[in-house]
Computed example of a mutant assay.
Amino acid sequence: MGEDLHQSRRAVFASVGAGGLALAITACGSGTDTTTAGTAGESSAPQSSAPESGAPQAGGALAKTADIPVGGGTVFKDQKVVVTQPTEGEFKAFSAVCTHKGCVVGSVEGDAIVCPCHNSKFGIADGAVSAGPAEKPLPAQEIKVEGDQIMLA
């Protein structure tokens, strides 16, 4: 009986640990970060119309053009994509998964897409590494701009 009780306790601890890990992973990876370009002292209101309940299908609206600041960008964590507007009317999209260790990038600060895990930085115009430890650029993602809508291609 002592051995069965000991194994039963292990099973309870293992399942509680796995459930807690799943909850922590879900909490860390959800939501849409709407950090945008700005200078010190300015506050940026959240600027995103991305749906909160999952990734849009190809062709579905991701954001409005007005949601993406000129010289900055917006991270859509649920969709794992970051959309930037390096110059007025020029929209780019990149994978939001950092090429260093696979973290989802956290923000766009000035002209850099920033990964919060190890502070890698990528250019908003081309996804190129501007500060390591990442060594590879963020892969480009296909988007379409129709009117004021930005859609995943």
Rank of each mutant, 00 (worst) to 15 (best):
A66S: 08
C117F: 13
A128N: 13
D111A: 10
T65R: 05
T65Q: 03
E142P: 03
C117S: 11
C115N: 08
G17A: 15
T65S: 02
V75L: 12
V70S: 09
D148Q: 01
V145A: 02
P86W: 09
G110R: 04
D111T: 11
Q57M: 15
D67I: 03
G59D: 06
L23P: 02
T26K: 15
A24R: 11
Q57E: 15
A63G: 08
G147R: 06
A61H: 06
V104I: 15
H6C: 07
L23C: 01
S48N: 01
A131H: 04
G102Q: 14
P56R: 12
Q47P: 00
E109T: 02
S30I: 11
K77P: 02
G71K: 10
G72Q: 06
F122P: 05
T99N: 10
P69D: 13
A112Y: 08
Q85M: 09
G106Y: 14
T36A: 10
T32Q: 01
V81C: 15
Q7H: 00
A18H: 14
I124C: 07
G72M: 04
E88S: 13
A40C: 00
T65W: 05
V81T: 13
T84R: 04
I25F: 10
A24L: 15
H6K: 02
G72C: 01
K136C: 01
S8D: 08
I124V: 06
G19K: 13
E142V: 03
G127D: 07
G132I: 01
A61D: 12
C98F: 12
D33Q: 12
R10Q: 11
Q85T: 02
V114A: 12
F91V: 00
G60T: 09
E42A: 02
N119M: 11
G147N: 03
E109L: 11
F91I: 04
S95H: 06
P51H: 07
C115W: 04
K77Y: 07
T65D: 12
G71V: 09
H100C: 03
G106L: 13
E109K: 04
F13D: 09
V16M: 05
I68E: 06
G71H: 09
A96E: 05
F91R: 01
G132C: 00
Q47D: 02
L152E: 11
Q85F: 00
S49F: 05
A55S: 14
E90Y: 08
A58V: 11
C28E: 13
V129M: 10
A125C: 02
V105W: 06
S95Q: 05
T99L: 15
A45P: 01
V82H: 12
G19H: 09
